[in-house]
């Protein structure tokens, strides 16, 4: 008797297949690991893909220098537990080199990650970057292939994507460019949480509800930190919140929540009425197509 496969089993098997295509076709790939929940799932998938062997690629993190310390600590600990190599390149260094110039010192560095990422690609000669992006996150991502070709400036040309048929993935990098591979393309936010629950994956503590000083801004909650102080006229309140997504402090907002366990988060996620990015991104509301524009510039 063979147990029937669940939706999560199928998503997992497909993701493993995609990771192995990277290993089989690419000379020098890297896996982007930020300490966020999607890349935590990627690491679990990589274990199922390659163990008992080592991962055939290093982990790479582009650090804006504006990340939550809990997440950075988690990133380092997880990489050490796995015994895999972690490469960190920071936007700070790009600023020092003069390749990133900030218009204002307190400007969000989120967008500038693209430059540091491109520099890391050149430094190591990566021909493929594996990322945890999902198609349900955002409408430009909804149009991206599992294997997405980038030119030498790291740019995505949405009008000129490779056809992608069946399970026959073309992971070959074009001359001077590279490919990005998205094993979680068909996963939804709920799938990710269900996978975390099923696999018992550990997460940075800020994913769970905790009291945090916040202000209400533009319909969202903005965390109050040294980097992101309250603006004039704003009232700081200590609220119970959790993060649905973690990223640069200056542009990631928490949501009001009392969910302190994965089971509670799952219940909230299944009942949610606002999309992950809509609830949490302080930078996506500025323009209908901000994600596409950033992707065209080489953003992940």
């Amino acid at each position: 008797m063979i147990a029937p496969r669940t939706h999560l089993d199928r998503l997992e098997a497909e993701a493993i297949h995609i990771l192995r295509e990277v290993a089989g076709q690419c000379q020098n790939p890297a896996l982007l690991f930020s300490g966020g929940k999607d890349s935590i799932c990627l690491l679990r998938l990589a274990e199922k893909t390659f163990r008992p062997g080592r991962f055939p690629f290093p982990l790479l993190h582009i650090d804006t220098g504006h990340n939550y310390p809990e997440v950075i600590a988690f990133r380092d600990r997880r990489a050490a537990e796995l015994g895999e190599r972690l490469i960190v390149r920071s936007v700070e260094d790009s600023i020092a080199r003069g390749t990133v110039r900030l218009a204002r010192p307190d400007e969000s560095r989120n967008r500038h990650q693209s430059v540091t990422l491109r520099e890391a690609i050149e430094e190591f000669g990566f021909d493929c970057l594996i990322g945890g992006a999902r198609r349900d996150e955002e409408k430009a991502r909804a149009k991206e292939r599992v294997f997405s070709v980038r030119d030498e400036f790291g740019q995505w040309d949405p009008k000129n994507q490779r056809p992608e048929l069946w399970r026959l993935y073309n992971a070959k990098a074009p001359a001077g460019g590279h490919v990005r591979a998205f094993p979680l393309s068909d996963w939804t936010e709920l799938d990710v949480w269900q996978y975390i629950a099923r696999e018992g994956l550990e997460l940075p503590s800020i994913y769970f509800a905790h009291p945090r000083p916040c202000v209400r801004r533009g319909g969202l909650l903005a965390p109050v930190t040294e980097l992101t102080p309250a603006r004039e006229g704003e009232t700081v309140e200590t609220l119970w919140v959790r993060f649905r997504t973690v990223g640069d402090i200056t542009c990631t907002a928490p949501v009001a929540s009392r969910a302190r366990t994965i089971a509670e988060i799952l219940r909230e996620t299944a009942a949610t009425t606002v999309s992950e990015r809509g609830a949490t991104r302080l930078d996506d509301q500025t323009h209908e197509a901000s994600m596409e524009q950033r992707k065209r510039e080489g953003y992940f």
Binding site: R135, K139, K143, P158, K159, D186, E288, E292, Q293
Partner: peptide, 28 residues
């Protein structure tokens, strides 16, 4: 709902495949 790309909105057409996910009952 499905027009994701700038060029698509400009031209009012769909250029590339957009993937969308939803559930109804036991089926995804």
């Amino acid at each position: 709902v499905t027009d994701g790309l700038i060029a698509e909105r400009e031209q009012g057409i769909t250029i590339d495949v957009a993937y969308r996910y939803f559930r109804s009952g036991a089926r995804t």
